[in-house]
Amino acid sequence: MILDKIHTEKMFLYYSEKVALKDISIKIPEKRVTAFIGPSGCGKSTFLRSLNRMNDLIDGVKIEGKVMIDNINIYDKNIDVVNLRKKVGMVFQKSNPFAKSIYENIAYGPKINGINDKKQLEEIVETALKNAAIWDEVKDRLGDSALGLSGGQQQRLCIARTLAVNPEIVLMDEPASALDPLSTSKIEELIVQLKEHYTIVIVTHNMQQAARISDNTAFFYLGELIEYDKTKTIFTNPSKKQTEDYITGRFG
């Protein structure tokens, strides 16, 4: 049986006074890839970022309703945000490796979690890089700056960095939108592999990508969740007119 890792109930999000997300109720299953699609500004990224409270960094964001992860409301008063973010990792649209060496980039997460044993760190770094399918490309130059890598490599490095802290959920905000087709396909392959161990939520503008890699797809429009179903259903037999219009390319 598949458990629901994340579910939200009647969630509203406001930027100051403006409503950005309206009445979102969704159940995201464990160890599956869930894709969010929709035109720009529809709130899918905002929603994604509210799942590990990255929106806290923005002034004036207010959230109502329930956002449950493992049946715990993450917006409760006594939630430890730092640990929440360890549990719910995130990969950003623009690859953002630190201005450190490749090794240090990966080791940073474990280090701040108190792992200082060199041997153990090396193991973690190797595993993370292997899981992110970049080990073979960088194993000979772990001491080099991560900023010297290509865009696709940097993004996989960021995925490796996220994996190194061993999260349960990985949120991906358009991880391949700035990459060439080859790097994109590598990242897609990677995502499909990763769902064995992680619950993955991915925001994408690329509908083929959503169709290729996701198990479930949610369609957002103007801050509302229009339709949410099995990916196959969404792309072959959507129940809402708006969804159909969007995926057939009539707008967006």
Binding site: V82, R85, K94, Y108, C158, T162
Partner: peptide, 12 residues
């Protein structure tokens, strides 16, 4: 983005 990346890794 460095800030975000670090916080998303669970750094304080």
């Amino acid at each position: 983005s460095f800030n975000e990346a670090s916080l998303a890794l669970g750094a304080s």
